[in-house]
Amino acid sequence: MPDLQDAHPATGTAEARELENIRFVLSPPEAGEIQITLAIGPQAQLTPKLEGAIEALARELQNREIQSLLREKCTPVIVCNPLSCSGVTICNLEIGPKKGTTA
């Protein structure tokens, strides 16, 4: 990671900012990506299984990149990771934790 020492000083208010959690300001493009809803709660602990699943997701995103780039229509595919297999839909990215669930 880069050194953040040179980052510009804060200019706006911090009110309510701490209440916000981890969130996309700009989401990954809808078209040509892989939709996957990870059943991860905001407070979930990182278990070895979960870590493996995330790595599998990263690998799948790599592997499927070109196919999804060229895909014209939303096509369901199956993505498997060390935990399970799940349905995935190209072209319509929906991410984020399901509240109250854990991996």
Binding site: L4, A10, T11, F24, V25
Partner: peptide, 25 residues
């Protein structure tokens, strides 16, 4: 292709491969 920046007490990372920008405490 990550680029990090900071605003107030939040950190942000932009990624050129996806064009997405993620903020975090």
């Amino acid at each position: 292709y990550n680029i990090w920046t900071k605003r107030d007490d939040r950190y942000y990372v932009y990624n050129g491969m996806s064009g997405s920008l993620l903020g975090m405490p």
